[in-house]
Every structure is written in C-alpha cells, then in structure tokens.
Nucleic acid binder design. Structure first.
Lengths: 238, 238
DNA sequence: CATAACCACTTGTGCGGACGAGTTGGCGGA
DNA sequence: TCCGCCAACTCGTCCGCACAAGTGGTTATG
C-alpha cells in the first residue's frame, strides 16, 4: 500500500552519519564507530557500511586512516561558489524600468568574434540597467543571433518577466549548459557612464553562453562599477 | 625481489578503460563491454569491475544506465581552473629587478582588517613589480605580520629566489592551505601608476592566505592593468 | 493486427566471507 | 628499565553469490 520507496541502504547509512555529524553528536576530530560496530548497530553488511564510509570520505565528510579508524572532518564546504555576474544576467527577470532598449544592429567586430558569426551580421541587442535599491549597479548588454531570437520575445521591446534563460528554455527548449566569462577592468563607455551616472572604472565582463554541444547561444557584456562590486573566491592551494 | 608494488585491481581496471577511451578505441557514445564481459576479459570479480565503473562514472568518464549499459562520455574536463593572480604572487620568485622595497610600517586600517590585527600594529611590506617581456604588468604589495616574518628572510630587502610560499614552507614549515581573493576595478594609486607607467583602470585584487586552521598568514593587494589582464572562467549552468 | 507475456540481457544493491596490511598497547624476556 | 614480539583491533581489497529492477526483442495470444 505505502509508496514504500526506500532509498538504498548505503544511502541510509550515509544519511544517518551525516545527521549525527550535523547534530554535533560526532564532532570534528572524533573517531567514528568502527565498521564492525556500525555493522552491528545498523544491522547491515560490512560491504554496505564500507561503501557508505568511502563515499562520505570522497565527499569530504570524514577521513579514513588505514589501521586507525575513520574520523570526522565536518560538513564539506561546497567550494564557496563564486558569484557569477553573467549567470545573474541570464536569470534576472526584467521590468519596464530596467529595460533600456532592444534594437537590431550589425554585429560589431568584437561581438561577431564572440558569437562566431561574420562581422556585420545583424543581431539583436538587449540593453538593461540593474539597480540595487534604486541605484544603478550594472549595465548589461546582451547580443543574440537572429537564429536564436526568431520565434521568441527576445527581439521585442517588452520586458521578459522570467529572464532570458527561462524564456529560451520555455519557448524553444534551448538549454544553457555552460558559460565562459572573462573579467577585466576598463573605463565605462560613454553610454554606460551615462546610465551608471559615473565614469569611474568598471569591472568589464564578457561572457558567452553555450548549449550542451558547445555552440554559442548568446553573448553579453557587463559593466559593473568597481565601487559597488567585488567578486570573491576561495580556493585551496595546490 | 621486485619492488612489486601493485595498485589495487579496481584501479587497474579503471586505468585500462581510461586508456582505451583516450586511445579512441572506445569513442564517446559507444557502449562499453558489459560488466560480465569485462569480468571474463580481465579475470576479476564483478565487484571489482563494478567498483571501477562506478568510480569512473562519478569522475565523469562514463555514464551508466540501468538496464541498458555503460556508455563513454570522454575525458572529464578538469573544470578549467581559473588563473589565480594571488597564487602566482605567492609562488613567483623575485629578482633584483622586481623587488621595489621592503619596509616595516604600522598597518593601515584596511590591512589590519585583512590580517586580523590591531590598527597600526607594525607589519612588513614587500612591494614588487611583475614584468612581462620588460613591460610592468602588475604591482604586488604583500603585507606580513611580524610573528610570521620573524626568523625568515621576508623582512630583508634581498630578493627571495624561490618565492614567498616556498620560503615560508622551507624555513618555518608554514603551509599555505587556502586563499580568499576579492577582485574589483579601481584606479591605481599614485605609486602604482608610477610603477606601471599608466593610470588606466586596474583590476584590484585583495587576497588573504590562510593556514589549515584558517589563521591568516599574510595579505596582499595587487594592481593588474585592465588592458593587460583578463581573468577567464568556465562554469556549468545550474 | 495489436497486445501481453516472456526471455535474455543489462545495471543496482546487498550479503558473508576471506585475506592483507597498518596501528596500538600490553606482556614477557633480556 | 628497556625493547621486541604478539594479539587485537582498525581499514583496504577482493571474491562469489544472490536477487531486484530496467530494457528491448521475440513469441504467443486474443
């Protein structure tokens, strides 16, 4: 009668141990019960316990030392995902305020390079201003090839409430697979300076969005005022 | 007689399959031999084959589909490690040309924050200029607490041939565990502008280096001219 | 002809047992 | 006292077997 969908036992063992770590019952540095003890306590085979422990070790929850035991390390840090400005730009919903203009122009040289099309091929440009509590905090310029934009609302001057990624996903089933992003420092262009209300240095982000096959779906150029944005990153040495 | 150090069998199975993928014998999309076939071919138990295949799947070499088979995906991409300017600064060897000055000064406010010491605590400052084919490409200012610098050559105005990390490792057995890095855009300071020969916008990098316990070993502030540096990053969506 | 049952294949999970090897502490002999 | 050996513990690997469950093609049935 019951749905009776049981996760595999080794996963249950993992969960049990993770919960004890998170609750503090097993503190960092503590030795875990030995495999044999866990077998008795949990009523499963050693194969199962070992599989659970080895997976936890791979994920960084515990450390295993041959001949000594298994030791708690703590909840693994997720690698502290960096903030990805281009990803926010792809996700962010638009409103009448943020959308500056939508035009169709021949692709300038640097954009045609990013999109992999011939120079001066017509492309759609969506220009937007992101604001934080009213203050302009970024100018986002998105370049979309016509083949991609056709049949969507990307070339229409109305705000996309759900953002670019969700719109393309819903209307044309296009999947954003990965993004390459290049960050530098530069002066804002004249237009960016006007929209931002300042010509102080900006972080210039150039990004291309790719589908699973690696083809470029669209490109974007962001101007983030240096006084408002810091991109933080934590990483292990060697 | 022989050293006769044999890696575990499951690792040998993994290697065998990886090699066949890299050689092209198994092309992306191909179905791998079934577990039973591998058992017969390689003369090991199914447990061993399964462990190898499941590990390969976790690492992204292959995909496994219940009831259908295992399929080649290809060599997993390493996540395309981003360039870490602060890491280069820690590793880079110095020479008479690059070292600008080594002084002892009271920590200014923002540095004392980074180092977690009281304002105006004396600290060592090493200032260097990185060059690429003669052109100044970065100004690197490193701030080191006295406790760390004592007993090392960090407070001496001679170039450290092997770089800061290796020097601290060799002399005081201090291990660099992780680094947090914050990137922004700003104008260079007057001194940076002089050393760089330009006052165009720079990427400003503030970084702190931590030991395994999380304690701050040193801090650094880098000025990378925007016209010379792009930080590239590739990442998966969602 | 459409459908259902069946079969041969695949991977997923689980058990018990076995042996190897590293670690630790205690016990006895020198 | 000091040192070496050994037993008892730990994890690492491997095996054979078993059964569940998903997939795809063939065959029997209505």
């Amino acid at each position: 009668m019951s749905m009776d969908f049981a996760p595999p036992k080794y996963a249950q063992v993992m969960r049990a141990i993770q919960e004890r770590i998170e609750s503090g019952e097993y503190a960092p540095g503590d030795m875990l019960p030995s495999e044999t003890q866990l077998v008795r306590e949990l009523g499963v085979g050693r194969t199962t316990v070992v599989r659970a422990l080895q997976t936890l070790a791979m994920q960084g929850w515990i450390e295993r030392e041959h001949g000594r035991g298994s030791f708690v390390k703590g909840r693994p840090e997720s690698g502290a995902d960096r903030v990805r400005p281009s990803l926010s730009t792809a996700e962010q919903g638009e409103n009448a305020d943020s959308l500056v203009e939508v035009t169709r122009v021949p692709a300038p040289r640097h954009v045609s390079r990013l999109l992999g099309v011939a120079e001066r091929t017509p492309v759609i440009v969506r220009k937007r201003v992101a604001r934080q509590s009213g203050v302009p905090s970024a100018v986002e310029t998105v370049w979309i090839p016509l083949e991609i934009a056709v049949g969507t609302d990307l070339d229409k001057p109305e705000p996309l409430r759900n953002g670019i990624r969700r719109h393309l996903q819903a209307v044309k089933h296009l999947r954003f697979d990965h993004i390459t992003e290049r960050v530098s420092a530069r002066r804002p262009t004249k237009e960016e300076a006007e929209l931002l209300g300042s010509s102080n240095p900006v972080l210039g982000v150039l990004a291309t969005v790719h589908d699973p096959a690696g083809a470029v779906l669209l490109a974007m150029s962001l101007a983030l005022p240096g006084s408002l944005h810091e991109l933080e990153d934590v990483f292990k040495v060697s």
